[in-house]
């Protein structure tokens, strides 16, 4: 197989309209040489999973600041599994209490990046998984 470019979907599930964080991450990943498909605000988990499949991404980055992450993030991973696309790695960010992180990881979210995370940490996370 020839060299594969990293493709990643950045999405905002649910109803909050705060996309600064998602945009900062999208921009940082772009500058790290990745192709970032940004799908915009207020996406349902169904929309996110369908877009991820059509775009053939290796990663989905979810951003949620509304507090509905425990509902929305696992919905994305279970829909991926139903579609036979659970090879796509899901990670998340936003305002997520540390108590919720074990539950989300159990539901298949690979990593959670809270406020203050440096973008290089996210890039390293992606690159290290690509090398595997």
């Amino acid at each position: 197989m020839s060299e594969r470019k990293v493709r990643i979907l950045v999405a905002k599930p649910g109803l909050d309209g705060h996309d600064r964080g998602a945009k900062v991450v999208a921009r940082a990943l772009r500058d790290a040489g990745m192709e970032v498909i940004y799908t915009g605000l207020r996406q349902t988990p169904e929309q996110i999973v369908r877009a991820a499949i059509q775009e053939d991404v290796q990663f989905i980055g979810l951003s949620c600041l509304s507090g509905a992450h425990n509902h929305l993030f696992p919905k994305v991973t279970s829909l991926l599994e139903e579609s036979g696309a659970d090879d796509i790695i899901v990670f998340g960010g936003g305002v997520i209490p540390s108590d919720d992180i074990p539950f989300l990881k159990e539901k298949g979210i690979k990593e959670i990046f809270g406020p203050g995370t440096g973008t290089d940490k996210i890039i390293n996370f992606i690159n290290s998984l690509c090398d595997e």
Binding site: K5, A26, A32, E35, Y38, G40, R42, E55
Partner: peptide, 12 residues
Amino acid sequence: GGAILGDRIRMP
């Protein structure tokens, strides 16, 4: 070589 592919936003 990176890119922001943002056309989908207009047709959710």
